[in-house]
Nucleic acid binder design. Structure first.
Lengths: 207, 207
DNA sequence: TAGATTGTTAATCGATTAACAATC
DNA sequence: TAGATTGTTAATCGATTAACAATC
């Protein structure tokens, strides 16, 4: 398949969902899975799943389906999590702590390996085996540890400042949990994961 | 506008984003705003913003723009957060605590007013002014307090069970933070807000 | 009036789904 | 071989954007 073809966001966002279920199957020692099976389990159209995967290569066998472990390997490669990606987080509040708990789940594919905060009371605190550092050390640490993704879990009014620090330090992508729009250069990818907008849009669907 | 017209998810998800920025403008005593202004600030096409709003009514004035406070009122009505909506949360871990912190931000429009956990060690704990209750009390509390939305912040393997409890108790919509697909009757709306899939899809955009 | 900006239609663009030949 | 299921094309469906008459 043509690597230069632009893959849509919607496709990319489904890949981790496939991966998560495939991991489950793998742990149950399931060998193969069809797009039909996946579609039922994940509430998606089987044709869509086949098409999503076909953007990146021919991973299945006609008449058989997909080899679970092979597909896991391929999706990890596509998502670029086949090698460890280091992540930094700013904002050692409850949300920051919660996200650090996912390190175990992310296994050896992604790792929050540095946490920063501006408040002196937080500095030196241990979250699992990570020590909270002052934001002044952000730039140096990001370079030293080759951190490529930054997570923002500070209050809305500090989000832009933190984004600026990340950008200057050379981070390539940002996951923003603050309820604020942050502006960054076009080459930096930002995903917003704002709880309040999620909850408000859910209210629309009440009767 | 035709109320029976099906509004797309994409439209509904943008409304809270508009609302958040309009609230900012209102606090700065800005009287009116154009779709142009909004578009620049929110990185959206002005025509899209006008079209989104036009699904629900004629809220603007030609040649002038939108009255900020009037539009806030209208969007709140559309999202059904013009009256207080009660929310329950199961899973009093770090993530549960973090979400409870947003109560102040959600003001008098939505409120997490009950928190449950299965672990005896958590029961009775105070989160701000909410006392953590055992899950056995979930159904009764949800009915008593007229709770309409449920939030799941338990580990993946317990998510489906909690979803079942919510559905039985009569909740109308669920916000699921667990990295798991939960199955519910079609009339119950589920939004997934899973940190791990967000982070993994972000990795795709690294160079 | 002249300039600005909405609401809405038509055009474009993109994503999903159906269908089926290829083939395991 | 017969049945199953992929990869892919074509058809459908839906969302975004451009353009502009209406009008403040």
């Amino acid at each position: 398949m043509n690597k230069t073809l632009k893959i849509s966001d919607a496709v990319v966002r489904r890949l981790p969902v496939y991966l998560r279920y495939l991991d489950e199957l793998s742990m149950k020692n399931v060998q193969t899975v069809s797009s039909q099976d996946l579609g039922i389990k994940l509430d998606l159209n089987p044709a869509q799943i086949r098409k999503d995967l076909a953007y990146f290569g021919e991973f299945g066998k006609k008449g058989i389906g997909y080899d679970v472990n092979y597909l896991i390997e391929k999706i990890r490669q596509i998502l670029k999590i086949d090698k460890l990606i280091n992540v930094a987080l700013v904002g050692a509040g409850n949300l920051g702590h919660a996200l650090c708990n996912y390190n175990a789940y992310l296994k050896d594919h992604m790792k929050i390996c540095a946490v920063f905060d501006a408040a002196p009371s937080k500095i030196g605190e241990k979250i699992h085996n990570i020590t909270v550092q002052p934001v002044q050390e952000l730039s140096e640490t990001i370079k030293d540890k080759e951190i490529r993704i930054g997570i923002i879990t500070v209050p809305a009014q500090e989000a832009q400042q933190v984004a600026n620090l990340f950008v200057e330090a050379g981070v390539e992508a940002i996951l923003n949990f603050a309820p604020a729009i942050i502006k960054v250069p076009a080459e930096i990818r930002v995903h917003n994961a704002d709880f309040t907008t999620e909850l408000q849009s859910l209210a629309y669907f009440l009767d």
